[in-house]
Amino acid sequence: MIIDGLVYLGSSHFGYELDAASAITGMDGVGTDIAIAVPVHPAGADFGPVNDAVIAAALDSAGRLIPLARVDPWAGDAAVVELRRAVLAGARGLFLHPSEEHFRINDIRVRPIVECAAELGIPVTVSAGFHLFAEGLQLGHAAEWTPDNAFVLTNGGQFNISGLGQFDAELALQNPNVHVQTSGIYREDFLERVVATFGPERLIFASAAPMFEMTYERKRVDLAHFNDVERQLILGGNSARIFGIEE
């Protein structure tokens, strides 16, 4: 089973968009069975409607889409309330985007939300690699708050075209609950080193569509030098385990 660890659904305040039908068409085109779906940043400040929209899309998708709830830590206690509400409505995980919501991932305001996710038994996925908001060591720090709960970092935990983000991302991976996604990572040697150093259970295929392109992102995994067991885990086994998806 092929599971894409991240697609964004909706029309973002920041100008990108993907609807559920287009997402599934794209998934069919590249042989993806299931995708983990997160809401985009809404036009206003209320994340409830976008969470409900993604949950509804997932309910309509015959199991092709697994919804996560997105909340804004600047909402304070209301963010925890919204997370609990969305999980009751069907969300299977928490998604945080420190760059688009402008918060530092290891800010103390974030901790109650991450701890709530752990209490609810749902994994946390974080849009990672952004300067000031979601740097490798900041992400590692936040992952320490709930060491027994899966903490998934998009983009290999980094964004740097000189390869300078690799070091801190690997330090973050020293937290056993940290996993990294393949989206956008141009360094094949980094992806292979994550598997060799930390194990194939720690690397997760994700396209991050529509930010990145589904076909090209899949090829990052297909062309890297993994054995069959490793590739099966990366392409779907790890997401199945983390998000409780029956294979």
Partner: peptide
């Protein structure tokens, strides 16, 4: 260290 095969696919 980056893959010419992958980059060609782009």
């Amino acid at each position: 260290v980056s893959s010419p095969s992958l980059e060609r696919q782009k």
